Amino acid sequence: MTSSSSSFFADEKLNGNGGSFSTPPTTASSSSSTRTPPFLPTRAEALLLFAYPALLSFGTLFSLLSPQVRNAPYDPSLQAHSQDPLLSPSYFARKSNIFNVYFVKRGWAWVTLAFLFFLFHHPATASTQQRTRGLLRWGLATLWWLLVTQWCFGPAIIDRSFRFTGGKCELVDAKMDAGLASGKDIVTGVACKAAGGQWQGGHDISGHVFLLVLGSYFLVQEVGWVVVNHWRRSGSNGSTAATAVAGMRDDRSVVMGDGAIKSATVEAERVAATAEHRLASAWDALAFGGKIATAVIVMSWWMLLMTAIFFHTWFEKFTGLCVALVGLYGVYFLPRFVPLLRATIGLPGI
């Protein structure tokens, strides 16, 4: 690390006032000009964000280089390889695989359960304010998920995008001949399938990529910053964890009401670490709720890789990623330089 202001490791110490943390004045003044801008991710956040296009790129490259995947029949209308077990290149290439049916298809439910368990059971999120703000952030992320995949004052954003780019529902001949439905009256993919048709043409934003990126990074933000700050505080009384976490700090920057840019820790609750809070490792700092959330994150990354290898075109996956990042930016980065919004929904771990 070349700059104490742009890494997780910087010299911090107790200021003697109830166990709160402060940076020595000389460090604060010398690093203020090099602090990460509030509208940009920290170095750690940038690395985690980079993991998503890296997974998608690796999966796409693997699908092109693997003879087994490259030579398998592909159906553009399904955005997938043949679903016949004898022709499918992998168990994970079949939409009927158990992880797709019971995890991805119910992805936001898993994310919600993991988050709520963490929020209401982790010792560092015990205050009413923290829980209320956490629920507000979850509500905004959920609203974005609903608008993109379920309903947006009519058809969802994914369906509107599909039709705007020339897509339509092509019904089977029997339905059309019988006059039971008309392709122009079907405005969602779900309705098209229910009518016995196929959603064809146009650009289909990858809903799987959108969901897996949105859900997993939501948990990374909500769990990650809480654990970083909780673990850091745990070593503040000279415990054995102090050596391991010495100087670990919250690297986010925020814009104050007067326009000044300061460390996010200026808004942190001043909680004194006690002997009961001393933790030997970050794994302990996760607590049980954090470990459940970690399992959901890891499973989301795995299924994102499977989606990258076996489903959708590169551009469909790329737009799914971009749409997810738009929502995440609004929930986790916009409040850092909009004080009024931050006063309402707060920041994770603060």
Rank of each mutant, 00 (worst) to 15 (best):
M1A: 14
S3V: 07
S6Y: 07
S7T: 15
S7L: 12
E12H: 13
G16Q: 08
N17P: 04
S20A: 11
S20W: 06
S22N: 11
T23M: 11
T26S: 12
S30R: 14
S32D: 08
S33Q: 12
P37C: 06
P37N: 06
P41N: 06
T42L: 03
R43K: 05
E45T: 04
A46F: 06
L49K: 00
Y52I: 13
A54K: 04
L56Y: 01
S57Y: 09
S63N: 10
S63H: 07
L64M: 14
V69W: 01
R70S: 13
R70W: 04
L78M: 12
A80M: 05
D84E: 11
D84I: 12
P85C: 10
P85H: 09
L86I: 11
L87D: 07
S90W: 09
Y91C: 08
F92M: 15
A93I: 10
A93F: 03
F103T: 03
F103E: 05
F103S: 02
R106D: 09
R106G: 10
A109W: 14
A114T: 03
F117A: 04
F118P: 00
H121V: 11
A124K: 00
S127P: 01
Q129H: 10
R131Q: 15
T132C: 12
L136I: 15
W138H: 07
G139I: 10
A141M: 11
W145D: 00
L146W: 13
I158D: 00
D159L: 06
F164H: 13
K168G: 13
M176A: 14
D177W: 11
A178I: 10
G183S: 13
T188R: 00
T188K: 00
G189S: 13
C192K: 00
A195Q: 08
G196H: 01
V209D: 00
F210L: 11
L211R: 03
L212Q: 02
V213F: 04
F218L: 06
V228L: 15
N229R: 15
H230T: 10
R232K: 15
S236P: 07
T240D: 14
A242M: 15
D250M: 05
D251H: 09
V255G: 03
G257A: 15
G257I: 08
V266K: 14
E269Y: 12
R270C: 09
A272I: 09
A273I: 09
E276V: 11
E276G: 09
G289T: 05
K291C: 12
K291A: 13
A295R: 04
V296S: 00
M299S: 07
S300N: 05
W302G: 09
W302C: 11
W302Y: 12
H312M: 06
G320C: 06
G320L: 02
A324L: 02
V326I: 15
G327N: 02
L328T: 00
Y329D: 09
Y332V: 03
F333L: 10
F333V: 07
P335D: 05
F337V: 05
P339R: 03
L341C: 10
R342N: 14
A343N: 14
I345F: 02
I345D: 00
G346D: 04
G346T: 08
P348L: 07
P348I: 07
